[in-house]
Every structure is written in structure tokens, then in C-alpha cells.
């Protein structure tokens, strides 16, 4: 699947390049920082990367697949992990409970998508509303604080290398190997490229859908649980993670139309976003200016990193459109 690619440059290059440019600019602007800027970026990035990896799996499962519930599931995971951890006295049980909550929320999405046949964006929107209702109910009279040991681990950076970031890096590698080297992985991307064709080839597309959405929900809740342990649980904790997770996945080179997943790019995208926020804060631009610049930068990265050559014709319509042609429901043009 990956071999079909027609460039020599791997698709995640652009996001890392952008991150490095921002990093250099940060050094130039502040004239200080050294390696700590990188250390701290790697301390914050893993949470966004975890959510991003889940989002990436969902997006690469074909056109129209997206999970807009990650933000609320993230917050819910955080609240549940801390609450359960506080009651039982064990942060492991807390994380387990968060994983369970993520699984349950994603199950709602899966049922709505596969059995009620609601388009993913609306199905996950409904899930997000339900997750937010549970969070609000939990938050009333909420008691509990993060476990000091887990918090200590998340802050632990021997020799300036955050240990938690290493764990997430290893996990990213695992996802990468899974996608490239296992039958399951290739089947998943096959579904993403052309669902109907994959089904004719004997791939169970339903199973793939169940897998990607459940993984995404679990990762979002787990990331939320860890993020809450890093600082403090909060109903609004996840709010920024929805748009950011989508953005870092796409900036990282994953195709929105499905069929190409780039786990390494999620790291590049996340680091780019985090460093960019830091740089913009540092320059002290007005919030208005920050937004305009951020928007134009995202568009610029898209302009450079997209699949088509900069000059010349678009080779062929999107895979997405190809699939539409295959879809029998398309009515004749009047």
C-alpha cells in the first residue's frame, strides 16, 4: 500500500521540517532555551500524539471517517481515572477505568455508525454529547487529586529525555510496524483506500471499523487520564484536543481520504503545533495575529505537503471520488 507512493520524500518530512524551522526561530527570538525547549515540548507532546494516533487510524480507514468525540472522551477519561484512583487508592485501576470508559463511549459510536448507519461525524458528535453529559454529572461534587507517583513519572526526564515520551515513541513505532508489516494493518489500509474492493478481496471492513473507532476512543480516554494525572482533571481539559488532533494528523501526512497512515508524522505535527504556540506566545503577538498566522501556516504546510506536484495538472481525482462512482446510491445526474 505504502509503496504506491510516488515521491522519494517520506510524507512526514514536511511536518518535522516545519517543527525545526519554528524551533530555530524560537532560538533566534529568545536567544536562549537550549535543549530544554525540546525537552519540554516532548513533555507536552505525547498526550496530543496519543489522541492523534487514534484519530489517524480512524481517518485512514476511508473517506468520511473522523472521530469528533475525542475532546469530550479525553476529559471524561481524566475525570474517571482520578475519581477511581482516589476511591481505590490505585492509579492503575484509575487508568483501567478510563480505558473502560473510552471503550464504552467508542462502542456507542461504533453501534451508531455500523448498525444505525449514521455518518461518523454525526455519530461521534452524538457520542461526544453523551460523554460530556457524564463528565458534567461526575464533576458535580468531584473529589480527588492525581496520584503523586504517576505524576512524578510523567514529569520524570532523566538526562533531559522525558521517559513518558520514550514510551509513546515506542508505541508509535509499534503502530507503524503494525500498519506496515501485519496482515491486519494492510487490510485496514486497504479498506481505507477502497472499501468495496477490499471487501471483494475478502477483508471484513466492519471489523476494521470496529477496531479503529474502539482504539481511538481508548487512546483518547487514556491520554486524558494521563493528562489529568499530569496536572488536574477538568471538564474542559480536552477541548483543544479535537481540532489539534485532526490538524496534526493531516499535517503529518496522513491522507484525509483514507488509505495512507503516517504515525511518525503525528509526532512531527504535534511538535510543530506545540513549538509554534510557544513561539507565538514568546513574540507576544496579539491573540488575533496569532490566529491569523497559525491559520496561514497550516494552509502553507498543506500547500507544500499535499500529494499533488506544485506545478502541473492534478493527475487523477481523489480515491474518495472513485469510491463514489462505485457506490450504487448515486443518482443519475439530471
Amino acid at each position: 500500500m505504502i509503496k504506491v507512493r510516488n515521491h522519494a520524500i517520506p510524507p512526514w518530512t514536511w511536518s518535522f521540517l516545519a517543527a525545526v524551522v519554528v524551533l530555530v526561530l524560537t532560538y533566534i527570538v529568545s536567544g536562549r532555551g537550549g535543549s530544554q525547549t525540546i525537552t519540554l515540548a516532548f513533555t507536552v507532546a505525547p498526550y496530543l500524539v496519543l489522541v492523534g494516533l487514534g484519530q489517524m487510524l480512524v481517518m485512514s480507514a476511508g473517506p468520511g471517517n473522523i472521530d469528533v468525540s475525542v475532546a469530550k472522551v479525553f476529559s471524561l477519561g481524566g475525570l474517571i481515572a482520578i475519581a477511581v484512583g482516589d476511591v481505590t487508592g490505585s492509579w492503575i485501576l484509575g487508568l483501567g477505568a478510563a480505558v473502560g470508559a473510552g471503550f464504552a463511549m467508542a462502542s456507542i459510536s461504533v453501534i451508531a455508525i455500523l448498525y444505525v448507519r449514521i455518518p461518523p461525524i454525526v455519530a461521534t458528535l452524538a457520542t461526544s454529547l453523551i460523554a460530556s453529559a457524564i463528565s458534567l454529572t461526575l464533576a458535580k461534587g468531584f473529589q480527588g487529586s492525581p496520584d503523586p507517583m504517576l505524576k512524578g513519572f510523567l514529569n520524570w526526564a532523566p538526562l533531559g529525555i522525558p521517559a513518558f515520551a520514550i514510551m509513546v515513541l515506542l508505541f508509535t513505532l509499534l503502530v507503524s510496524v503494525f500498519l506496515k508489516r501485519t496482515i491486519w494493518g494492510s487490510q485496514m489500509l486497504a479498506v481505507g483506500q477502497a472499501r468495496r474492493a477490499a471487501e471483494y478481496a475478502g477483508v471484513n471492513a466492519k471489523k476494521t471499523m470496529v477496531f479503529v473507532y474502539l482504539t481511538c476512543g481508548v487512546l483518547a480516554a487514556l491520554a486524558g487520564a494521563l493528562r489529568a494525572s499530569f496536572s488536574a482533571p477538568n471538564v474542559e481539559l480536552g477541548n483543544d484536543y479535537l481540532l489539534d488532533s485532526i490538524a496534526v494528523v493531516v499535517i503529518g501526512g496522513t491522507l484525509m481520504t483514507g488509505g495512507r497512515a503516517v504515525p511518525a508524522g503525528v509526532w512531527g505535527g504535534a511538535l510543530f503545533f506545540i513549538l509554534l504556540d510557544g513561539l507565538l506566545n514568546l513574540i507576544g503577538w496579539s491573540y488575533a495575529g496569532q490566529n491569523v498566522l497559525k491559520g496561514f501556516l497550516v494552509l502553507a504546510v498543506l500547500f507544500l505537503a499535499s500529494g499533488a506536484p506544485i506545478l502541473g495538472q492534478r493527475a487523477s481525482p481523489d480515491p474518495a471520488k472513485d469510491e463514489d462512482v462505485a457506490e450504487p446510491e448515486v443518482k443519475p445526474l439530471s
Binding site: S30, R32, Q36, L40, T43, V44, G278, G284
Partner: peptide
């Protein structure tokens, strides 16, 4: 330094982690 943190603890934490090394 001057950031918009929306009086929100988590946002302040992220904004500071992103800039602290340069301050």
C-alpha cells in the same frame, strides 16, 4: 512574558511549558 491563558490552569501550564525555557 505575556500570554492569554483564559484563566485556565491547564492552558496556562501548556503555554508556560512551551515558553519557559526561553524565559
Amino acid at each position: 512574558g505575556e500570554f492569554f491563558t483564559f484563566c485556565d490552569s491547564a492552558k496556562a501550564q501548556e503555554a508556560l511549558l512551551g515558553t519557559i525555557a526561553s524565559l
